[in-house]
Simulated scan of single mutants.
Amino acid sequence: MARYTGPVCRLCRREGQKLYLKGDKCYTDKCPVAKRNYAPGQHGQSRKKITEYGLQLREKQKVRRYYGIQESQMLKYFNMADKMKGITGENLLKILESRLDNVVYRMGYAASRAEARQLVTHGHFTVNGKKVDIPSYLVKVGDEIEVKGRSKSSSRFKEMIEEHRGTTVKWIQVSPEELKGRIVSEPSREEVDLPIEEHLIVELYSK
């Protein structure tokens, strides 16, 4: 299935909460979720009885949209998580957090995951000194992510240094002045800032 290219604010309204897909706009009064906190479409305001399957499906869709991944990728990550030691749901979130586009966003070098995905695709970042232009690339402990040499002189990245908000997660150590960061530990479940009930996703895929 092709990637969704419509208004992303509709996705937030469909899930009934902010997924922070539009960057700074999500933190203002202009956010459509704050104005119209109901699903989009003709029947968006009608009350519907949601089934157990519906709850599981909505949770899975919410996570997919939050990280900007397709169904085939989501299923691939679930199968990976299921084979790992530990709790499958938490393993799944750790994998999603380890995606390069998410790491760039967490480092504060993009206003949204969509922007981070675009920056990675355009080849602005290196991992351990080698250019990586695959947003789904999974980083691991010890990896060093850095803005590529030429890109550091661009006005876009100079603005990042001035406006850098800093990472909100402890598993990434960031050096804003050098436009680089290092993965110092595995992602922590507690640091996933979106309310996610991952056990519902596990139940859905386990059927």
Score class of each variant (00 low, 15 high):
151 S>V: 04
101 D>T: 05
27 Y>E: 14
18 K>C: 15
159 E>M: 11
182 R>K: 15
79 N>C: 04
45 Q>V: 12
150 R>L: 11
3 R>V: 10
32 P>T: 10
169 V>P: 01
21 L>P: 08
180 K>P: 13
92 L>D: 05
168 T>R: 14
46 S>V: 11
108 G>A: 05
206 S>P: 02
144 E>H: 00
48 K>L: 06
61 Q>K: 05
18 K>R: 13
10 R>E: 08
180 K>T: 10
182 R>S: 12
102 N>F: 03
206 S>D: 12
131 K>D: 07
199 H>L: 05
107 M>K: 02
158 K>A: 05
54 G>D: 09
53 Y>E: 10
63 V>D: 00
161 I>R: 11
26 C>D: 07
123 G>I: 06
89 G>D: 01
86 G>D: 06
63 V>Q: 01
207 K>T: 11
43 H>N: 14
126 T>D: 10
53 Y>W: 13
89 G>A: 07
156 R>F: 15
34 A>P: 00
202 V>E: 07
96 L>H: 04
161 I>P: 08
132 V>A: 01
195 P>D: 09
99 R>C: 10
161 I>Q: 13
39 A>C: 06
139 V>S: 03
198 E>N: 03
79 N>V: 06
167 T>Q: 09
168 T>Y: 00
152 K>I: 07
96 L>N: 00
153 S>G: 02
178 E>S: 12
103 V>W: 02
34 A>R: 15
182 R>I: 15
67 Y>C: 02
127 V>S: 10
206 S>L: 10
72 S>G: 01
43 H>R: 13
56 Q>K: 13
90 E>C: 00
124 H>Y: 12
38 Y>H: 15
48 K>Q: 11
115 E>N: 08
47 R>M: 13
168 T>I: 09
28 T>Y: 09
54 G>I: 12
170 K>Y: 00
150 R>A: 14
145 I>C: 06
34 A>E: 14
71 E>T: 10
124 H>I: 06
152 K>Q: 12
113 R>I: 12
15 E>M: 08
133 D>K: 04
48 K>F: 04
192 V>N: 12
18 K>E: 14
72 S>W: 02
99 R>L: 07
110 A>I: 06
147 V>D: 05
142 G>W: 00
184 V>R: 04
80 M>N: 08
188 S>D: 14
48 K>H: 11
8 V>Y: 03
31 C>N: 07
124 H>K: 07
80 M>W: 00
175 S>I: 01
175 S>Y: 04
192 V>K: 05
200 L>I: 09
113 R>V: 09
53 Y>G: 01
115 E>L: 11
